[in-house]
Amino acid sequence: MRADAQRNYDRLLQEARQAFIVHGTDVALEDIAKHAGVGIGTLYRHFPDRYALMNAVFEQEIEAITERARELLHCGDPAEALARWLRSVAVHSTAYRGLAAAIMEGPDARMPACKSLLRTAGGSLLWRAQQAGAIRGDVEIADLLKLNYAIVSIAEKNTDDRGLYDRLMAVTVDGMRVRHTEDGSPAGFRKSFLDQVDEMAAANVANARGAAEADRFA
């Protein structure tokens, strides 16, 4: 990349980072280009769309989250380490309004570098907790990140309740912990929500048929 092109790229990243913090990720790209001292065409030459620009900005931020995951790999309680890391993700997401939604709600083709870094960092902590028998084996990092995003979104809409995120995350982590039977062996995993719905529906159908048969012979 030529020196002038590199300067434009760096200025665009710097202005975009500040704009996302102050105005959120929906800020007009024209405003970012203007404050960077370049035309909108220059912005699009470097970043084909809004998500390419966001990916470039947040990839650097997520490096800090990745480093935090490495530190927490040495935490004595693997489940607590996972919870602390998720809180770090939440703090970064809240600083940039719209970041969590952009990463979690879009398809995998959108902001792929950010998603890959998050899943790799969190996946190492989750795997460690599962190997230690602390977290259920059916928990997946992609689902856990979506749960974290949902909790962040709720907390952002209830800013007067400052302890809301921590309470909801505590419930989430508790629900992921492995339960043990009286003899100390791990308890079986609960059936999925949809499996329970199917079983309830089947039971209702059977009850309805039984009632119909009883009425016919009454």
Rank of each mutant, 00 (worst) to 15 (best):
S185K: 13
T181R: 14
D108S: 09
V139K: 14
A28L: 11
L73H: 11
C114T: 00
A102N: 06
V139T: 14
G41Q: 08
A100L: 03
A100E: 01
A33L: 06
S116F: 13
N207H: 13
P186C: 03
R17W: 05
G184H: 14
A150H: 14
H23P: 06
E213C: 14
M1T: 15
A113T: 02
Y96R: 08
Q18D: 10
A155T: 11
A83N: 02
L145P: 00
S88W: 01
A56V: 04
G98I: 02
A3E: 08
A100C: 05
E156M: 06
N158G: 07
S153V: 03
V152Q: 11
Y51L: 13
A83Y: 03
L13K: 09
R45Q: 08
A36C: 07
A100Y: 02
E105A: 10
Y9R: 11
E61N: 11
L86A: 06
G24L: 04
A218Y: 09
D198Y: 08
E182I: 05
A132V: 05
K146Y: 12
V57I: 08
Q18E: 10
D49L: 08
W127H: 15
M104S: 10
T159S: 10
A211T: 07
L117M: 15
A134W: 07
L29Q: 12
R136W: 04
R17E: 10
E80H: 08
L72P: 00
E140Q: 15
T181K: 15
R110E: 04
E67D: 06
A113S: 03
P112W: 05
V152C: 13
E71C: 13
N148S: 15
S116N: 13
F193L: 14
L168S: 06
L145T: 01
G24D: 04
A100N: 07
A121D: 00
G76F: 07
C75V: 03
D215W: 15
A150I: 09
K115C: 02
I62W: 02
A36R: 11
A170K: 06
P78Q: 06
H74I: 00
A95S: 09
F20R: 05
R110F: 08
G175L: 05
L147P: 02
G123E: 04
R209Q: 12
V89G: 02
P78N: 06
